[in-house]
Amino acid sequence: MRTIEPIAKLDLAFSLFCLQHRFSYPLSRLSKAISHTGDGHLYAVLGGLAWWMDGERGLMFLLVGLLAFTIELPLYWMAKNAFKRRRPQELSELVTSFITPSDRYSLPSGHTAAAFLMATLLSFFYPELDTFAFVWATLIGASRILLGVHFLTDVVLGALLGLGCAQIALTMLAGA
């Protein structure tokens, strides 16, 4: 446990830096809006629209997305319950949480994992959306930190989880 202690200290220091400034409250409103786009409803809509509007490519986008989320969700829940990392506001009374998280533990960030999974799929099937997709996914990860519900490493590991699950699904179904 001592090997991760410096990382945990850095995580807490970064969270305090992000959350203890005069812009925290106004920034939390924008962060809530950005974070809400990663709640999951948008992914289903994107998959359905792609299938409806883009024929075979859209159907493949939907199928690869379903497979990727089928892989990602159990891994996410197993990691959450294996690490049992407490959220920032539980570790320091100096950390303000601007929302109530949907589950108890923080590692990895599920919102970030899902956003990077979707960004990876969008960039594969619709390369013209590449920059937008990854900027959006990064903003979702940043919003989770700015809302006080995740540490930086939660977001980084969430992004890696999403990227990895998307790549596995792409390899299995799309031959990528």
Rank of each mutant, 00 (worst) to 15 (best):
F98W: 15
L129P: 06
V64Q: 07
G65D: 05
S28P: 00
L121W: 08
F14V: 13
F116I: 15
W51H: 11
F124P: 00
C18L: 12
P26Q: 10
S123T: 09
F116G: 11
D39N: 03
E90Y: 04
L107G: 06
T100H: 13
L146Q: 12
F14S: 12
T100E: 15
T138S: 15
Q89R: 06
L157Q: 11
A115G: 08
L16P: 09
R29H: 07
R85C: 06
E56T: 14
H36I: 06
A68R: 03
Q89T: 10
R104Y: 06
L16H: 04
W77S: 02
V64N: 10
P88G: 13
L161S: 03
S35P: 04
T131H: 03
T120S: 13
K80H: 00
A114W: 07
A68S: 13
L16S: 11
L42P: 07
Y43D: 04
G65C: 07
T112L: 09
A115Y: 03
I145T: 00
F61S: 01
L161P: 04
H36E: 12
G55W: 09
L16M: 08
L129G: 00
P26S: 02
F61N: 02
F61Y: 07
S109E: 12
D130E: 10
I99Y: 02
G40I: 05
W51C: 13
P108R: 11
L66M: 12
H21M: 06
P101Y: 00
H36N: 09
R86V: 11
Y25A: 15
S15K: 05
F134D: 08
L63D: 05
V155R: 04
R86Y: 09
F132N: 05
C18E: 13
D130P: 00
F61R: 07
N81F: 12
T96I: 13
A79R: 00
K84Y: 00
Y43G: 02
Q20A: 05
S106K: 04
A68V: 07
H41D: 15
I71M: 04
L117M: 14
L152W: 14
L160N: 03
E90P: 01
S109V: 14
D54N: 08
Y76P: 03
V135W: 07
H41R: 12
T112A: 13
